[in-house]
C-alpha cells in the first residue's frame, strides 16, 4: 500500500485539510471534548481510534459542524467553519461524510440518492448529475443497482451507495464514522476495499474505526483518543505496535 507522496516542499505551503485547535465540546455538564488539537493534511489518511464514549464521533461531527463546538477553532482548508459568516452549506459540499447507519434516503432510488444533493446543493443539471452518479456507482461496484431502493440492498451495498453519494459531490475530503460497525462481518470487506481504493487515489480521509487492520494498512497516521483528549498519535506501526501510553496499551489489548 502506497499513499500518495506529499512532496516535502508542497507540505510547507499547503494548509492542512482539517485543523482543529483547542476544541472543547460539552453537552450540558458533560464535557465530551476537552481541548483537542488535531489535524489532517491534504491527501493524508488519519484513523481515529479509542474506546466507546471517548468523543471520536463528536470530534468528527465538529469538523462539518453537525455538532456546534463549545470553544476552540475548526479550520477546513483554511476556512473557519465556526465563523457565522462562513457559507456552511458550500463548505459541506467539499466535505463528504459517511455514517455508521448509512442514512440513505429511503424514499429515493439509488440514483435519486446520488443526484439529489448534486442538483439541490451543487446546482448541477439533471443529465450531469446522473452522469456523475453513474460514474461513482461503477466505482463502488454497484452500477447495476441504480434503480433499486435502499431497502432492497444489503447493508454493505447500502454503505457503498452512501460512499458513492458523498463522492458524487466531488469532495476534497471524506469523513467516515465507523462505516463498517453496523455491518455483518462478511460484508465489511467490500466496504473497506472501496475505502482503500479511495485512499490509493489520494483522497484526504478522516476515519473513525474499530478496524485495526484497516488502520494499520491504510492509515498514514493513527490518533488514539480517550476521555475527550488525544492521548497518543503517530505512525500506525508505532501507535498500534509499540504504544507509549498505558491507556493506549490497555485499549489495544482489548480490541486486538
Amino acid at each position: 500500500m502506497t499513499s500518495v507522496s506529499k512532496g516535502s516542499s508542497a507540505v510547507s505551503t499547503t494548509e492542512p485539510a482539517i485543523e482543529v485547535r483547542a476544541l472543547c465540546k460539552s453537552f450540558g455538564s458533560n464535557d465530551v471534548l476537552k481541548g483537542i488539537d488535531f489535524h489532517v493534511d491534504q491527501g493524508e489518511v488519519v484513523c481515529v481510534i479509542g474506546p466507546s464514549g471517548s468523543g471520536k464521533s463528536t470530534l468528527l461531527r465538529c469538523v462539518n459542524r453537525l455538532e456546534e463546538p463549545t470553544t476552540g477553532s475548526v479550520m477546513v482548508e483554511g476556512v473557519d467553519i465556526t465563523d457565522p459568516e462562513t457559507d456552511l452549506d458550500k463548505m459541506r459540499t467539499r466535505i463528504g461524510m459517511v455514517f455508521q447507519q448509512f442514512n440513505l434516503f429511503p424514499h429515493l432510488t439509488v440514483l435519486g440518492n446520488l443526484t439529489l444533493a448534486q442538483q439541490r446543493a451543487k446546482k448541477r443539471g439533471k443529465a450531469e448529475a446522473i452522469e456523475v452518479a453513474r460514474r461513482n456507482l461503477a466505482k463502488v461496484g454497484l452500477a447495476e443497482k441504480e434503480n433499486a431502493f435502499p431497502s432492497q440492498l444489503s447493508g454493505g451495498q447500502q454503505q457503498r451507495v452512501a460512499i458513492a453519494r458523498a463522492l458524487s459531490m466531488d469532495p476534497d475530503m471524506m469523513l467516515f464514522d465507523e462505516p463498517t460497525s453496523a455491518l455483518d462481518p462478511e460484508l465489511v470487506g467490500d466496504v473497506l476495499e472501496v475505502m482503500k481504493q479511495l485512499a490509493r487515489e489520494g483522497m484526504t480521509m478522516m476515519v473513525v474505526t474499530h478496524e485495526m487492520g484497516f488502520a494499520r494498512e491504510v492509515g498514514d497516521r493513527v490518533v488514539f483518543m480517550d476521555g475527550g483528549v488525544v492521548v497518543e498519535q503517530g505512525k500506525p506501526e508505532d501507535v498500534l505496535g509499540n504504544p507509549q501510553h498505558e491507556r493506549t496499551r490497555s485499549f489495544l489489548s482489548k480490541v486486538l
Binding site: R92, M97, F105, L116
Partner: peptide
C-alpha cells in the same frame, strides 16, 4: 444530518 452534510 445526511442531507445537511451533503450541503443541502
Amino acid at each position: 444530518e445526511a442531507a445537511r452534510s451533503l450541503g443541502i
